[in-house]
Design a protein around this nucleic acid. Structure first.
Lengths: 159, 159
DNA sequence: GCAACTTCTATAAGTACGTGATATAACTGG
DNA sequence: CCAGTTATATCACGTACTTATAGAAGTTGC
């Protein structure tokens, strides 16, 4: 309930975010990789090797979906399955060199594109966007369920 | 423009947007409808009935993809195919009542959720986000290809 | 008025990506 | 060693896209 009058029209917010969303969705020129795939590689990069089922939970998909995704990632040399030393049932997924390289290239391409897009804005508009980044970052870290901030997520500068 | 280095770290921008993207992607509680479907309905609502191939271009998908999407929308009573009075080849797609209602419900749900999320921010953070909205809106309107703004007057879609 | 070309939509075949239900292998605990 | 649990894989299905191609409806030249 915010009860303050400052944060006016929620529909304006929704519409803008909806458009931003659509715009961002169309920025993926070279690597044609799914959002979940990219996010999974990113998780593997920052968090290290993980169990397949852990990945499924982290990415918010079912275990069969992650099984398939890992199979595709493995086929494309982006990740690899490893055996767990103590438990024969477990599949540990590890980032492969190809995945690391893809993440790097993807990050660079998207950064370049965003800089290009930002270049189309006026200086004061750019300033407004940059000024809002910390807040947007926190907004992105809010957990949808309970309206609370997800703990350490926002303070972890990856890359 | 942008001659100066004032608009700092592009990676910060990318990361924030990437997270926002992931966050937004997980806000779709009730209506399980695809992004393209929702965007198409929105286009129909704001722009009125359109040809199938026009929709395909507007949503950035191929014509067969739009044919399939429209078929699903029609099956679910969200849109309907109409005949073009002067041209028998053309299929004009129109928003149906179900689609209008879905858009309304979806908008309300997302607005409520976003307001809830915004409520987790500090007042000055909310202010920063609101202040950036016009710029973000313009950013979302930038055409990826040429870095120009996609004006209302769609100038020369040649090719 | 009819063959030839163009335009618009539909269909076909393939891939990616997701789901729920279920099978299978591996680790428990009695 | 048998029963139960856990981790992954597989199956059947549906959505959502792609490219290539078919087919119907307009348009043009003669």
């Amino acid at each position: 309930m915010t009860s303050g009058g400052t944060d006016s029209d929620p529909y304006l917010l929704v519409n803008t975010f909806e458009r931003l969303f659509a715009m961002l969705r169309r920025i993926h020129p070279d690597q044609h990789i799914s959002l979940t795939a990219a996010s999974t590689l990113h998780t593997l990069e920052t968090g290290g090797p993980r169990r397949l089922s852990e990945l499924a939970v982290a990415e918010g998909v079912t275990q069969p979906a992650m099984t398939q995704l890992v199979s595709r990632l493995e086929r494309d040399s982006l990740a690899q399955r490893c055996a767990h030393p103590g438990d024969g049932r477990v599949v540990v997924v590890r980032l492969a060199d190809g995945g690391r390289e893809l993440l790097r290239a993807r990050r660079e391409a998207r950064a370049a594109r965003l800089v290009e897009l930002m270049g189309a804005l006026a200086a004061d508009e750019r300033a407004a966007v940059m000024a809002a980044l910390p807040a947007l970052d926190r907004l992105a870290a809010v957990r949808a369920g309970d309206g609370r901030l997800a703990a350490a997520a926002s303070s972890a500068p990856d890359r």
